[in-house]
Design a protein around this nucleic acid. Structure first.
Length: 816
RNA sequence: GCCGGGGUGGCGGAACUGGUAGACGCGCCGGAUUCAAAAUCCGGUUUCUUCGGAAGUGGGGGUUCGAUUCCCCCCCUCGGCACCA
């Protein structure tokens, strides 16, 4: 087969072999060491993009590497098939979302197969199919029974022209993307899952997850945002119900000079009734979208309500304001303001001429001017009556004790994390299995009536969900009393589907249970790979669902993903690839031009997986060139016949050197892939070894044996990245066996031994000489030889040597 | 605004636990091969330089015999911020 490298022929042949042999279909074998290797499943947007190719290749490399290590590897693939783009396509092109989605899946599956990923396609899951989503409907009804779901009002982006709810990404500069109308905040009833019930457990477990990156764990910790503080009630003059607030700084209680409530707060609404200015202000507050980033960066506005609260300790009256930065959905919808010791309160007080009172002084006794700048550090209490002189801890305890004793409140642990709102006013999603009855209120759909099937043959117009206009869907008998009732027409957030799919891959065909014993075999996922953009929401929701499933008796695992790898984006000209920017690169065209292996190789070589990857057409060309060199090297070696085994006793120095390089490289690549996930350096090391093989030019029996050993190793070690070419080259090297069934090469420690080692010599930290010395030389001998070097002596220049630092095997630093 | 990343030659990146900055590849320059080109192969390639060296990892400071690596401050940039997935 001394033909030039023809990627297409090589790749189709390898793929046909894997297909025919069903190489990647795996069952549950209790005797084998299982390894579940998973990548975040894609949304079927139409075509594969480079971001997909990158993450799937990373995962495939890990999967194939572990298979060569003797593991029983499962790598499945499926489709996160519900979501907005299908509705948008339907609006724009009149294609029903289901049809559009299924056709995209067909196209993308074909593209994935062409890339040669080692997937077990018999386990494919598609979330928009009733046999999948029925089980999350089922779990929802179980959660309902346990009180883990509830309904409450919450805020959405309302487009007053299109009369529809908008997603945050459909709000551009505060306006609806289609109507250009100013978006309003509007409250509607929605379903919530009590993720906060698991906040403490999920937070604590983060400390016992060594397989996750610290950055992701830190983000999740901050997101959960556990804080200890007190909740306390302020009496409101002329009101029966007091105003409850939460604070983590009870030590600053004596510094409260005003309070603020949300625009939606009942006290604000009440004040608005006889104050048109307040009413106008509240209306104005609603003229904004519901995103946190908008809220945090917009101008802080407020207005006095003309009502006062009573300070619980001093009895002084403090004015009540309504403010746009206080949200009804956060905490109690009201805050106590301590302008002296809170940044935002200070700025607000300055703007509205509210009094600023210093109640905390720096612990070191230094003077501060609270009118000139805010002081947010913890310190010693001043101007706080009985509490003066106490430090933060003592003041916290003292004031908290007083609050509890007075019956005004209590210590409370609070979370920044809010319960998960799962209702979406959209068509293309899993129907929420609830029936509304005038007598029985919200009733979950009984198990025997599941799944609630989403009608697929619909027309989508863009103004509201088509389900509302389908009496055959909406009208239903109440499961409890049998009277006429109405189905919920909202659907689930698509994060619900992606919160448990990883477990369903183990048993996608089970039509009588959500999970079975096969899930116990495969779960948890050993290696999970996906974009950093999912560091919080998707990963936290999945951790939550895993626990819900555990508490439902479906699994014994608490954590879904043992090891996590978050990969960076693919950029072109420094920017994320997007149709809008016109800087996309189509993987399909590249595969046609160079083959899948070249694309896979470039992806692995161009950057470490966690970092963003800058696309380069020249770089792809370079990867292609390397594969051609690789092909030629093996073919030229093979045409001279099959070389024998290495006889270590008969090698000359250059042969020994290549053999050392071979085994050094085996050690390096094993570590690079297995431990560090540093695929770019693994590829670089393979290139170095191949360069060394090509340089040897030794056709003696021993020379050819050493080359063959090296080539065998390179072919196996590059195969996770470029499996097709390696499949062919393994045969070319004369093996009767199949590459994917091989074992990873082993390091021969004896090949690594060196008689002489090179050390560098520094004088005052600057490189001045290189010396070669016996590997087992003593530090004294190393020092002596270093000092004897003429260039070293030149830089010592007659000065007294103050110190000599010898780092064994590395360097000598002479300090003068 | 808040939380988490990143910043090293002309470019992508390497340097893993504080120890030779620039591995490997791209690009470029020179050479071989060729009627010529493509492809391929060989050599060179941080900058400045008085050719001795000197400077250099976003900027400023610090710790250390020694800092891309650790600490403090700042700048730029990317991701997330609960309805994009």
């Amino acid at each position: 087969m001394s033909t030039p490298y023809n990627p297409e022929a090589v790749e189709i042949a390898a793929q046909k072999y894997w297909d025919d042999a069903r190489s990647f279909e795996v069952g549950e074998d209790a005797d084998k060491d299982k390894y579940y290797c998973l990548t975040m499943f894609p949304y079927p947007s139409g075509k594969l993009h480079m971001g997909h190719v990158r993450v799937f290749t990373i995962n495939d490399v890990i999967a194939r590497y572990h298979r060569l290590q003797g593991k029983h590897v499962l790598q499945p693939m499926g489709w996160d098939a519900f979501g907005m783009p299908a509705e948008n396509a339907a609006i724009q092109r009149g294609v029903p979302p289901a049809k559009w989605t299924y056709s995209n899946i067909e196209d993308m599956r074909g593209q994935l197969k062409r890339l040669g990923y080692a997937y077990d396609w018999t386990r494919e899951v598609t979330t928009c199919r009733p046999e999948y989503y029925r089980w999350e409907q089922w779990l929802f009804t179980k959660m309902f029974a346990k009180g883990l779901v509830y309904r409450k009002n919450s805020i959405v982006n309302w487009d007053p022209v299109d009369q529809t709810v908008l997603a945050n990404e459909q709000v551009i500069d505060g306006r609806g993307w289609r109507s250009d109308a100013l978006v309003e905040r509007r409250e509607i009833p929605q379903w919530f899952m009590k993720i906060t019930d698991y906040a403490d457990e999920m937070l604590a477990e983060l400390d016992r997850m060594p397989g996750w990156p610290d950055s992701v764990k830190t983000m999740q910790r901050n997101w959960i945002g556990r804080s200890e503080g007190v909740e306390l009630a302020f009496d409101v003059v002329g009101e029966e119900t007091p105003l409850t607030v939460y604070t983590t700084r009870p030590d600053t209680l004596m510094g409260v000079t005003y309070m603020a409530v949300a625009a939606e707060h009942p006290l604000a609404s009440k004040a608005a009734k006889n104050n048109p200015d307040v009413a106008a202000f509240i209306e104005d507050c609603k003229q904004t979208d519901a995103q946190e980033a908008t809220l945090e960066t917009m101008e802080k506005k407020g207005m006095a309500l003309g009502i006062c609260a009573t300070h619980p300790i001093t009895g002084e009256e403090v004015p009540l304001w309504v403010a746009n930065f206080v949200l009804m959905s956060y905490g109690t919808g009201a805050v106590m303001a301590v302008p002296g010791h809170d940044e935002r309160d200070w700025e607000f007080a300055k703007k509205h001429d509210l009094p600023i009172k210093q109640v905390i002084a720096p612990s070191d006794g230094s003077e501060i001017d609270i009118d000139a700048s805010v002081y947010v550090d913890k310190g010693v209490l001043v101007n706080s009556g009985d509490y003066d002189g106490l430090d933060y801890d003592a003041a916290f305890e003292g004031i908290a004790d007083w609050i509890e004793a007075s019956g005004r409140g209590s210590r409370k642990v609070n979370y920044r994390l809010r319960d998960w709102g799962v209702s979406r006013q959209r068509y293309w999603g899993t129907p929420i299995p609830i029936i509304y009855c005038d007598d029985c209120d919200a009733v979950p759909v009984p198990e025997e009536q599941l799944p609630v099937i989403l009608p697929e043959d619909v027309e989508v117009t863009g103004t509201g969900s088509p389900l509302k206009d389908m009496p055959e869907f909406v009208n239903v008998a109440c499961p409890q009393c049998g009277k006429d009732a109405r189905r919920e027409t909202d659907t689930f957030d698509t994060f619900v589907e992606s919160s448990w799919y990883f477990a369903r891959y183990a048993c996608p065909d089970n039509d009588s249970a959500m999970l079975d014993e096969r899930a116990s075999y495969w779960c948890p996922v050993d290696q999970y790979t996906g974009g950093v953009e999912h560091a919080i929401l998707h990963l936290l929701y999945s951790r939550f669902f895993q626990r819900v499933m555990r508490d439902e008796g479906l699994t014994s695992e608490s954590e879904p993903f043992t090891n996590l790898l978050t990969q960076g984006m693919v950029l072109k000209d420094g920017a994320k690839m997007s149709k809008a920017k016109g800087n996309t690169v189509d993987p399909q065209q590249l595969i046609e031009k160079y083959g899948a292996d070249t694309v896979r190789l470039f992806m692995m070589f161009a950057a470490p997986p966690e970092q963003s990857l800058e696309w380069s057409d020249d770089g792809v060309q370079g990867s292609f060139r390397f594969l051609k060199r690789f092909w030629t090297a093996v073919v030229e070696h093979a045409t001279k016949g099959v070389a024998g085994d290495v006889d270590t006793g008969t090698l000359n120095d250059t042969q020994k050197e290549l053999r050392r390089k071979t085994h050094q490289t085996i050690a390096k690549i094993s570590d690079d892939i297995g431990r560090r996930h540093s695929f770019n350096t693994a590829v670089a090391a393979s290139m170095e070894l191949l360069n060394a093989i090509n340089k040897l030019g030794d056709d003696s029996e021993a020379g050819r044996a050493v080359q063959r050993e090296a080539l065998n190793a390179v072919v196996i070690m590059l195969s996770p990245m470029v499996p097709h070419i390696c499949h062919a080259l393994w045969q070319e090297l004369g093996h009767e066996t199949v590459l994917i069934d091989q074992n990873w090469p082993k390091v021969d420690e004896s090949a690594l031994a060196l008689d002489l080692i090179d050390l560098v010599v520094q004088v005052n930290g600057k490189l001045r000489a290189r010396i070669s010395i016996a590997a087992d030389a003593s530090n004294d001998a190393v020092e002596e030889l270093a000092l004897a070097d003429t260039n070293v002596q030149r830089f010592i220049d007659g000065n007294a040597v103050r110190k000599v630092i010898v780092v064994p095997g590395k360097l000598v630093n002479v300090v003068v």
